[in-house]
């Protein structure tokens, strides 16, 4: 059993906690949060040990690994502290608010030889993994261009008051929403290295942007468009998609459906020339415990397996999340 603790029992923290609570190889040894109400609920209705001070929890509960799901501005100091104490760390996304802080964490985790992961769940969605497989296999030929998109109904009226509406704490559509798409683009096509113009637009929010429209260039010189809007209430929940055009074909993919067009018969097994449609039902395996989507369980399981040395610590590690932070910083620095 791996002893795991959680810092920050908000929306993502509670979701991780439930998945950890049901995991065969995990013993949850503590939950730390600053909200008395949340801790009170756990004290009363669960068997988790709760703490108001996370350092006291680390001291007393002695976890081997810690999930950090606090507002982004606290990631750097807390994660650093945990790494110095020799704990494996799963942090929520984005990694840090500044690329210098992120670099420190990447180096520290490597130096200490600790498992490190960030909660970009798209990489664990079957359709996107299949896209990665097709691209890595070279089946799309030379990549010309991509479009990465995400739309959803987070801020759909002029009213909000939590840390997500405070840019200093890591709020805003770019850090909270667009980061997912940037990370997915980095994962599938290689890192964003130049930004050729950005529009950050607010529709309802006073202090942060509600949308991100930007032109990107990757290390491979492939160009692309990022279009993200969290104020689109024609969507029931966040919807992320990527379109990739290459010399040998085209991919249109979201979390539930993959459409691929191949120009010739030179395509992967189970695909043919012309349009192919695959659904998430074909591309996903059942998980041991399902909460909000297979990907949320899979990412936690991958982290635990990395600690057990059953998988390499390569997907969504601090380094890849730091590259996403770098892209976010480029996007911010190129506002037109």
């Amino acid at each position: 059993m791996i002893k795991v603790a959680l810092i920050g029992a908000g929306k993502m923290g509670i979701s991780h906690l439930s998945i950890l609570g049901a995991h065969h190889d995990v013993e949850v040894v503590g939950v730390a949060d600053t909200s008395k109400m949340v801790l009170d609920v756990f004290k009363k209705y669960s068997s988790f040990q709760v703490y108001t001070d996370y350092e006291e929890m680390i001291e007393k509960a002695k976890p081997e690994a810690v999930f950090v799901a606090v507002p982004t501005k606290y990631h750097a100091p807390i994660v650093k502290n945990l790494l110095l104490k020799g704990k494996h760390v799963f942090a929520e996304k984005p990694l840090c608010l500044s690329t210098e802080e992120g670099k420190d964490l990447v180096e520290l985790a490597a130096r200490k030889g600790l498992i490190n992961q960030v909660g970009y769940h798209n990489e664990f969605i079957g359709t996107f993994r299949e896209v990665k497989r097709i691209i890595d296999g070279g089946y799309l030929g030379d990549i010309f261009h991509f479009t990465g998109e995400a739309y959803g109904p987070v801020v759909v009226r002029p009213k909000q008051n939590n840390w997500r509406s405070d840019p200093a704490e890591g709020g805003g559509c770019l850090l909270d929403y667009a980061s997912h798409v940037v990370d997915l683009i980095n994962y599938i096509l290689g890192p964003v290295t130049r930004v050729k113009g950005t529009i950050l637009k607010s529709f309802y929010s006073k202090n942060v942007e509600d949308s991100v429209f930007t032109l990107l260039e990757l290390s491979s010189k492939v160009s692309g468009v990022l279009s993200v809007n969290w104020s689109d209430d024609t969507y029931r929940k966040m919807s992320t998609s990527i379109t990739i055009i290459g010399s040998q074909g085209k991919i249109i993919c979201d979390a539930s459906e993959l459409k691929v067009h191949f120009k010739t018969s030179d395509c992967p097994d189970n695909y043919t020339k012309g349009w192919n449609v695959k659904y998430i039902t074909d591309l996903t395996q059942s998980v041991d415990f399902y909460l909000r989507g297979e990907e949320y369980s899979d990412q936690v399981d991958y982290f635990i397996k990395a600690i057990q040395k059953k998988v390499p610590n390569t997907i969504n590690n601090f380094e890849s999340a730091w590259k996403t932070d770098q892209a976010i910083s480029l996007i911010k620095n190129n506002i037109n």
Binding site: G10, K11, N161, N162, R164, K237
Partner: peptide, 15 residues
Amino acid sequence: AHKYANAVTELGIAG
């Protein structure tokens, strides 16, 4: 659930 999940993202648990 989406009504509450979207609200939690916007307003937090207490909100």
